[in-house]
Design a protein around this nucleic acid. Structure first.
Lengths: 163, 163
DNA sequence: TAAGTCACTTGCAATATGCAAGTAAAAAAT
DNA sequence: ATTTTTTACTTGCATATTGCAAGTGACTTA
C-alpha cells in the first residue's frame, strides 16, 4: 500500500472507504470466498479435501490462502479433527452464518437471470425447491432464519457431501 | 482458458459451474463492479468523471474496463450525452436494478459487523436512516421496491452527486 | 484561437490467481 | 513392522488482474 493511501486510510483499518457496500465488497469480493462458504452452508463440507471436490475446481494453493483469509476475517473457524490428526475441521462462525440473506438474494438474482436459466441443468428436487423459495418467497427472512438454525446445529441445507 | 476447462465448460458459457451462487460470484465478485453500481444507484453518478470521484479512488484504466464489462453484462447501458459530445451517460438497466436486494443485505451485514462499526464515521442523516432501515426493517422487499422505483425514474437514493 | 475538460489509452509495476509437482505427517493396509 | 495411501498443505513458475502515472485526441469554454 502506497504512502498516500496509508495517510488517506487513517482510521479505516486499511479499507478504501467506510461505505458499508465497499466494506462487504472488500471482505467478500473475490472469486472464491463465497464459493467456499456456500460449500460449508449448503453442502456441509468441513475439510480441505472436501472443498477441493467442488464443481469449480479450486487449486490447492488458492484454497489454502482463502481458508486462512476466512479464518482471519472471522467468517469461519479451524480446529483439529479429534478422530484424524491429519485433518482440520472448518466451521462457519456466526459472522459467516449472518451472510445467509446475501446468499438468498444472490441465488434469487441469478435464478431470475436468463443467462443463468440457459446454463442451469435442473439439479436435485431439494435444490430446485430451495432456489424457487429464494425467488418467490415473500418473507425471505423466515427462510434465512431456518437455514441459519440448520447450520448452527451442524447440519447443512442439502445435507450429504458429494464424494 | 486451458483446454481441460474449455471441455469441462461445455454448455456453461465459460462459467466454472451452473450453481447460482457461483454465477453471481463470477458476475459481481470483483473489487469494483458493485462499487460503480452503488455510485449510480445511491449517488446518481452517470459519467466517467463522476465515477472517478468516489472515496475508493478507482484508476482510469480500471474504470474504463469495468464500465465496458458492466455494459457487456447488461447491468448498465451507455449512451452519448446530447448536450456534450465528449461525455457518455451510463444508466442502470433492469438487470442492475434487480441487484437492489443484494445491496440492502450487504449493507445490513456490514452495518451489523463490529469492524465496520468501528470505522464508520456517521454520514448524513439520510445515510444513517437508510442503513438503519437495511438492518432493522422487517419487510426489506418493500424498501427494495421503493429504491427500484426511485432509480427507474432517473433519481437516486441520496440524490445529488458529490463534486 | 488558446486553454481547459473529458473520456479514455498506453506502458510498466505489483498483486492475485492458476497449474503442476512436491513434501511431511498421519492413517490404513499388508 | 514396513509399505502404501491419504491428507493438508508448500513451492516454483506462468498467466491474469489490478494499480499508478503519464499521455492523447475530441470537444467545450474563455
Amino acid at each position: 500500500m502506497c504512502y498516500v493511501l496509508r495517510v488517506r486510510n487513517k482510521g479505516l483499518k486499511g479499507r478504501r472507504s467506510d461505505c458499508p457496500v465497499n466494506f462487504a465488497v472488500e471482505a467478500l469480493g473475490d472469486k472464491w470466498s463465497l464459493v467456499i462458504l456456500r460449500d460449508m452452508i449448503f453442502w456441509g463440507k468441513k475439510t480441505f479435501g472436501e472443498f477441493l471436490k467442488s464443481d469449480e475446481h479450486i487449486a490447492t494453493n488458492i484454497l489454502a490462502t482463502r481458508l486462512e483469509y476466512l479464518v482471519g476475517e472471522g467468517l469461519i473457524s479451524k480446529s483439529p479433527d479429534p478422530g484424524d490428526k491429519r485433518k482440520d475441521i472448518y466451521r462457519v462462525t456466526e459472522k459467516g452464518i449472518a451472510l445467509m440473506p446475501i446468499f438468498i438474494e444472490m441465488i434469487a438474482w441469478s435464478a431470475s437471470d436468463s443467462t443463468w436459466q440457459s446454463i442451469a441443468t435442473g439439479g436435485t428436487e431439494a435444490q430446485i425447491k430451495f432456489v424457487t423459495q429464494c425467488v418467490t418467497n415473500k418473507d425471505k427472512s423466515k427462510l434465512s432464519l431456518e437455514v441459519q438454525k440448520t447450520v448452527r446445529r451442524g447440519d447443512s441445507v442439502f445435507e450429504g457431501v458429494v464424494r
